[in-house]
């Protein structure tokens, strides 16, 4: 276990528990054996953690999961006992952070993020996993756009502001009706990548994390850049973007000790010794 960066705070009060092993940083949110409602602190802790992990070369992949039975049981959006201007400002700022996490921070993070969802995953949790690269959900997970969060998250009826990875129809339906939907429905809607059984989900996520941790980190970063940007480009712009990225990647790999995989993989493939392109 590497301790290159301290992720949980020193007083042990962080809402996050972390473990870094062989390049895989597993982040567990909340408390063990208890349903856990997120609050503003969780969001700030997550934001700070992602910034640290992005700069930490020891981290190749992140796994995000709930520490207890749920991924995200809900958000303590408003505390009547603290109904002050300062509290409302604090919550609104936290919501801004959530927006930034889902639309920008996670997509531009140089490391891939896998979310592992079990139990309940409410609106704010859905917003977070939207920004993750790959999401595994247990078949019996329960996703829902919590009514209690609607005011703050401002989901527009019709779903225009819902998760962009979901199909438009599913987004509209679930954001309006507030129904729970399980892992299989989440997979069908595009919200998650795979729905998996309770017996298989941890193994599948760990296997994928290992696969991702073995990739050239520069190639991973540039692939994420490509995924984040080319969708909104014209075809010609995507050609130019690719040419520039290829040149930059090649230059950086030439001087990076950690990026020997490219030359060796190509040479091995051309010599007929291995077939990394086919996953071997």
């Amino acid at each position: 276990m590497s301790n290159s960066v301290q992720y949980a705070n020193a007083a042990g009060e962080s809402s996050l528990q972390t473990q870094l092993e062989r390049g895989v940083l597993t982040v567990s949110i909340g408390e063990q054996d208890a349903s856990f409602l997120w609050d503003v602190t969780v969001i700030h802790d997550l934001f700070a953690l992602f910034q640290k992990a992005d700069a930490d070369e020891a981290v190749r992949v992140l796994i995000l999961q709930g520490r207890g039975p749920d991924f995200c049981a809900g958000l303590v959006a408003h505390d009547d006992s603290k109904d002050s201007l300062e509290e409302r400002v604090r919550i609104k700022n936290a919501m801004e952070l959530v927006q930034q996490l889902r639309t920008r921070t996670l997509k531009l993070l140089s490391k891939p993020i896998i979310a592992l969802v079990r139990g309940r995953c409410s609106g704010v949790g859905i917003r977070l996993i939207e920004g993750c690269d790959i999401v595994y959900a247990q078949d019996d997970s329960q996703f829902f756009f919590s009514q209690g969060e609607l005011g703050l998250l401002a989901l527009i009826p019709g779903g225009a502001d819902g998760p962009s990875c979901m199909s438009a129809r599913a987004r509209s339906y679930y954001s309006i009706c507030g129904e729970y939907f399980d892992g299989n429905a989440a997979e069908q809607s595009g919200l998650v990548t795979f729905s998996s059984s309770a017996q298989e989900i941890v193994g599948a996520v760990q296997s994928l994390a290992k696969t991702l941790s073995e990739k050239d980190p520069l190639a991973v970063k540039f692939t994420k850049d490509t995924l984040a940007h080319v969708g909104s480009m014209s075809w010609d712009a995507s050609v130019n973007f690719t040419a520039a990225k290829f040149a930059e990647l090649k230059a950086l790999q030439a001087v990076s000790e950690g990026s020997a995989t490219r030359a060796s993989a190509v040479a091995s493939f051309l010599a007929g010794k291995s077939k990394p392109g086919l996953g071997r």
Binding site: K215, D216, L218, A219, V220, F222, T223, T226, H229, V230, M233, S238, V239, F241, T242, K245, F246, L249, Q253, S259, T261, R262, A263, A265, V266, F269, P276, G277, L278, G279
Partner: peptide, 9 residues
């Protein structure tokens, strides 16, 4: 990515 490349845009 298995070769250390990036898929073309």
């Amino acid at each position: 990515i298995n070769f250390g490349f990036v898929p073309g845009g």
